[in-house]
């Protein structure tokens, strides 16, 4: 009986690959866009403008304080009420990018704030413009703080992408739902789904750990 279920599952591998592909593509696109947007928001948030800074702060809090499932429903089901029709893929990308950007914004802000004031003063005193100070002095030093949690955030993003199955995108999780209707063994099916996610995430987890160790060692932290 188990054997038959295995055979039947093996037959679904093209579907599983499609699902895995969808998960990877969704994650990759929103990871790239979310990183760009997150850095932009983080830089603006630490800039001088109070209004811009507090608007970004409020948006980030809102997104971080509401379930992702609710956000994706709002984008996919509520926006059309206002005449904005999005296909599921676009809606998924927008929701994931926004979520990633908000978390990355906070990581970038923490990194920028970790750079000692004296560094900014030295850059100011030598006449570097605002953008030059950011690009040449602040960001390179902030990256040391930013990089490990940034990669960690990518892992969370890949896992959060499973929520897009709720609006009908055939990602890895949805493939699980489809397959389990034919092969009535939820434990086995979703175990395999979990393995799929793990295979994608594990290299990133290793990368985050290595970065953390390297960044610490480069700055002479005590090895506990």
């Amino acid at each position: 009986m188990i054997w038959q279920q295995f055979l039947s599952l093996a037959g679904s591998y093209p579907l599983a690959l499609r699902g895995l592909g969808m998960t990877v593509v969704l994650s990759l696109i929103s990871l790239v866009l979310g990183t760009l947007l997150g850095f932009g928001l983080g830089i603006l948030r630490t800039g001088g403008n109070r209004l811009i800074s507090s608007v970004i702060g409020a948006w980030v809090d809102l997104i971080r304080g509401t379930p992702f499932l609710v956000q994706i429903f709002l984008i996919f089901f509520i926006l059309p009420e206002f005449g904005i029709e999005l296909d599921a893929f676009t809606a998924g990308i927008i929701a994931l990018t926004n979520l990633a950007a908000c978390f990355i914004c906070e990581i970038v802000v923490a990194g920028i704030r970790s750079v000692p004031t004296g560094q900014v003063e030295a850059a100011l005193a030598s006449g570097l413009s605002r953008w030059q100070r950011m690009r040449q002095v602040v960001l390179p030093q902030a990256m040391r703080i930013v990089l490990p949690p940034l990669v960690g955030q990518y892992v969370l993003l890949i896992k959060d992408s499973s929520v897009v199955s709720a609006i009908g995108l055939t990602d890895l999780t949805r493939v699980g739902w489809l397959v389990v209707q034919r092969v009535p063994n939820g434990l086995l099916v979703f175990f395999l789904v979990g393995v799929g996610y793990f295979i994608v995430c594990y290299p990133l987890i290793m990368l985050a750990r290595r970065l953390e160790r390297r960044m610490g060692a480069a700055h002479g932290e005590v090895q506990l």
């Binding site: 004296g118 850059a123 005193a125 002095v137 030093q141």
Partner: peptide
């Protein structure tokens, strides 16, 4: 001010060299 600062060197107590 940015232009004027280029004419003024400032040496800090804590050096503030760019560590990277």
């Amino acid at each position: 001010m940015t232009q004027l600062r280029t004419e003024i060197g400032f040496v800090f107590q804590s050096f503030n060299l760019y560590p990277h």
